[in-house]
């Protein structure tokens, strides 16, 4: 497969990347390339310019200190080597289930978030963990909550001339998990559910965040299930009740492999499994 021609630039700083994007409205950011290049090979995407942020070392920084700050260009493989990230289980598990070894060696959390594939694993984990995404544009830096970041299929809150620079995971103390039903060919999520539970000293759930991907057109919170589990002790019966409403209110996607009805069902099953592990 043979991409159409484009110009290529490899800035050394975020500021330089932003000015390249501002000056070239048809430019796209190239990071790990594992979402963009396949589309370009099929000529489904034909950007006039690629701005390769692989040379901006600050974007590869990772710091873990209760919460975590992840540079947008850090690869899954690098991140999976940070034991500190295991505390953010939903994200760690989601990363370990992305694609395959080669994809994890090149692909990045930032790239997955910015691409916003509706069947990607990472968006659900970021939403469940209450992550914030930091973007730098011509007008400076802004922070976007994961809840507001994923707008639609392949569409985020990022402006075309903004660079996603880092992802911040708060130190909430939540216990979390990610469950996935992978497509047998693509490896993407037919359904993926990330949950994060905060509990008080009595074991009562004080805050629940549950996000689904794959079953839906964009990573989405399962508010009914969150409401159902909040305030409970997360017993098996509580989890069962919350899982039963996990698909309520969701706009479900369907195709020949998995209908909307089946994906709705999987959403419930995986919610139950993820809640069981997070509560366990």
């Amino acid at each position: 497969m043979y991409p159409a021609a484009f110009d290529y630039a490899k800035p050394a700083t975020v500021a330089e990347a932003v000015s390249l994007l501002s000056a070239n409205p048809d430019a796209k950011i190239l990071n790990g390339g594992h979402s963009l290049l396949p589309a370009m090979k099929l000529r489904l995407a034909q950007p006039a310019m690629l701005v390769d942020i692989g040379g901006i070392s600050e974007l590869k920084q990772v710091s873990v200190n209760g919460g975590a700050t992840i540079g947008a260009a850090a690869t899954y493989d690098d991140l999976l080597k940070h034991d500190g990230l295991k505390a953010h289980t939903a994200l760690y598990e989601a990363m370990s289930k992305v694609g395959d070894v080669q994809v994890r060696n090149r692909g990045t959390v930032g790239g997955s978030a910015a691409h916003a594939d509706p069947a990607a694993d990472i968006p659900a984990a970021l939403i469940a963990l209450g992550a914030e995404l930091v973007a730098v544009g011509p007008n400076g830096t802004r922070t976007i909550a994961a809840d507001d970041f994923f707008v639609d299929i392949l569409t985020t809150a990022l402006e075309p001339d903004e660079v996603l620079t880092e992802i911040r995971i708060p130190a909430s103390g939540a216990s979390s998990a990610y469950e996935k039903f992978a497509h047998p060919a693509s490896g993407y999520a037919v359904c993926g559910v990330a949950v994060a539970l905060e509990r008080d000293g009595e074991g009562t759930v004080t805050n629940a965040r549950i996000a689904v991907t794959g079953s839906v057109y964009k990573a989405t919170r399962c508010s009914a299930a969150e409401a159902a589990i909040t305030g409970t002790k997360a017993t098996a019966a509580d989890i069962e009740a919350a899982a039963a409403v996990a698909a309520d209110g969701l706009e479900l996607a369907g195709d020949h492999y998995a209908s909307a009805e089946y994906r709705g069902h999987l959403t419930k099953v995986l919610t139950k499994r993820a809640l069981t592990r997070a509560a366990g």
Partner: peptide, 13 residues
Amino acid sequence: GKAVKSCTVLAVQ
């Protein structure tokens, strides 16, 4: 040092 799919990397990268 890492396995990558060379069909999904540009030579310039």
